[in-house]
Simulated assay, not measured.
Amino acid sequence: MALLAGDDLDRDKFFKAGHPVIKGSTFDLTIGSIFDAKGDRKVEPYNLKPGEMVQVVSAEEFNLPNNVTGHVTYKTRLTRKGIWALTVGIIDPGWNGPMTTTLFNFSKVEFPVAIGTPFLRVSLFQHKGVHDSLLKTSGLASEYKREVQSDASTVFPRSFLNLDVVASSASKLALKSFNRTAIALIAASAIVFALIQLVITLSPPFVSGWSSDTQLEIEKLNYQIEMLRQEFDSSTQVEMAKLRHQMELQGQDLDTFTQVEVEKVRQEIELLRQDFDNFKNKNLPSDLSTESNEN
Rank of each mutant, 00 (worst) to 15 (best):
H19Q: 11
R146V: 06
L185T: 02
G116V: 02
E147S: 09
P157A: 13
R41E: 15
F178N: 02
L249A: 10
W95E: 03
K13L: 14
R273G: 15
P285L: 13
E147W: 02
T69A: 13
L161M: 15
F27I: 00
V72D: 00
P50S: 05
V57K: 02
A114T: 09
G51H: 02
G139C: 07
W84Y: 09
L243D: 07
G32R: 04
S289C: 13
K145Q: 11
S168C: 05
G97W: 04
L216M: 07
H127M: 07
N179R: 14
L284G: 13
F156C: 04
Q267F: 05
N281A: 15
L78M: 03
N96E: 01
T102Y: 01
W210V: 11
L86V: 08
E294H: 10
L4Y: 06
N67F: 03
P45I: 04
S33E: 08
N222F: 07
M227P: 02
N96M: 09
L195G: 05
A2E: 10
E248A: 14
H127P: 00
R121L: 07
Q259L: 15
L243N: 13
S235Y: 05
P93R: 04
S107W: 02
D287L: 13
M227K: 15
E110T: 09
S211I: 05
T87R: 09
K128W: 05
A194E: 09
K242I: 13
S235D: 13
L175W: 02
A184W: 01
L161S: 12
L198G: 08
S123H: 08
E61M: 11
G89C: 02
V57E: 04
L134I: 00
I186C: 06
M53L: 14
D151G: 01
K172G: 03
R121T: 12
E261S: 11
A152G: 06
N293I: 12
T214K: 09
I269A: 11
Y46R: 08
Q259H: 06
R121I: 10
T290K: 15
I22F: 01
D213M: 12
S289K: 06
P20A: 05
T101R: 07
T181Q: 07
Q197A: 13
S153Q: 11
Q267E: 12
K172A: 13
L29D: 00
K16P: 00
G97D: 01
S58M: 06
P50Y: 05
T256Y: 03
A184S: 10
D287K: 12
A114P: 00
S33Q: 09
N293E: 14
E60L: 08
T214P: 01
E110N: 11
L29E: 00
S58Q: 08
L175P: 00
K145G: 01
M240A: 15
L202I: 03
L272Y: 10
E291N: 12
Q197K: 11
L161F: 12
K75P: 00
Q224E: 15
P93V: 02
E291Y: 12
V54K: 07
